[in-house]
Design a protein around this nucleic acid. Sequence first.
RNA 1: GCUCCCUUCGUCUAGUGGUUAGGACGCUGGCCUCUCACGCCGGUAACAGGGGUUCGAGUCCCCUAGGGAGUACCA
Length: 470
Amino acid sequence: MTVRTRFAPSPTGFLHVGGARTALFSWLYARKHGGKFVLRIEDTDLERSTMESVNAILEGMTWLGLEYDEGPFYQTKRFDRYDEVIQNLLERGLAYRCNCSHERLDKLRDEAMKRKEKPRYDGHCRDIEVSPDEPHVIRFRNPETGVVAVDDLIRGRVTFNNEELDDLIIRRTDGSPTYNLTVVVDDLDMKITHVIRGDDHLNNTPRQINILQALDASPPIYGHVPMILGDDGARLSKRHGAVSVMEYREAGFLPEALLNYLVRLGWSHGDQEIFSVDEMIELFDIDAVNKAASCFNTDKLLWLNQHYIKQDDAKRIAHLLSPHMGNLGIDPSQGPDLVAVAEAHQERARSLVEMAEMSAFCYQDYEAFEEKAAKKHLRPAAREPLERIRETLDSLGEWTEETLHAAVEQVSADLDVKMGKVAQPLRVAVAGRAASPGIDVTLYLVGKEASLQRIDKALDYIRQREANAG
RNA sequence: GCUCCCUUCGUCUAGUGGUUAGGACGCUGGCCUCUCACGCCGGUAACAGGGGUUCGAGUCCCCUAGGGAGUACCA
């Protein structure tokens, strides 16, 4: 039997991290077992489904590299098939027409709640003939007794009493099929062997199994993965920052970092933290997925992101960095080689956005000195070192990291001061702040002309300060 | 309310009857050092509570508490 898994989002919004993790687990399971991964769009809710959402979901999956083998299949294109199944159920007496009014249903619910019971449909129309010509819904005739057991890959055996279930609507008054029916028919038709989905569906599973049995089909194997919560333990929402996968791209995250973070959320393999996609496929084990929901922790994601930024090829990082530079109004082709700039910042940035911000000085003059840095380093005592290094740099033959390093060392030696006494004021002058890559690299990237100009600006600042003090 | 699910450091987790309860993020002390970062060494911090079972329980059972999901002519 070939393994076939699926991801079946409803297109009512973006691909969020919870859905992405469910998709990842499902995808990994298929890949690990040499199976197929199917994408299905559950768009039977005509009111809320949009094409923009479909595109956003596809974009998110593509970015993460969760490629599907079949699909996307759209449920709205399969209404004929659902009708056929409903008709079949109707003919065999396993479903029936119901014309109970909303009012009656509401009343039923209120009364049940008052009696501290679970609200269920009372089966009023079960044995009465409702004409096909009058407005009606179609309900599934759920077994009234017995238990349904789900042998879940993650939760273990979970059992439900049929008395708890009621006759659910499988076709609305407008003729459209409902979720629990379409899922069952689709999973069946698409020969899905393993249904890996969010655990918000665990309660639906017994109903689906009952429908499956009415259809003389054997249920697939289920695996209900827990939810992802916000860092405060509450349900993940916009309030927690980014929830959409694409927002993470915009925030400067690498897809492999998000994937690695997501796979470790609720799953682990001993003490291993870093997983390449190939390792995930090899080591992932759905049985080892935790039962409890887990909180999303951006700090750890940032750590992983930094790890991948650090480890990645500078060329690729530069390529990915480019649009973020653009967002700052910088055209990376005007200035130093972006690959060199990226390389210089690879160990310093936790995200590409941070990298763009911290390397902007290589392309454009900063607006003002970082206040604390200027106060600390651009003081009268720094004037001489700065003047000396300016002179040395001005007459430097070759502008390379080696010659620049030597120049700074030479001035420090001449002045008989530690290198920091020269490098720090120089750094603030050239980069505008107290932190930057090594001073030689920093100078190299800024270039001779801009460096000298900025040193002059720093010297002006110091003179101004001396004047004010005097 | 009812049904189902869940519960180890702040967070992600290891742990499948005998461990000084391990790792990671974070925080923190130090080393390295031209700054920041990286790297390295160290520290901080957890078995929700209560009953059993057992020579022995984070691990098995029960109860309580707390969280979550479902309870739609949403998916």
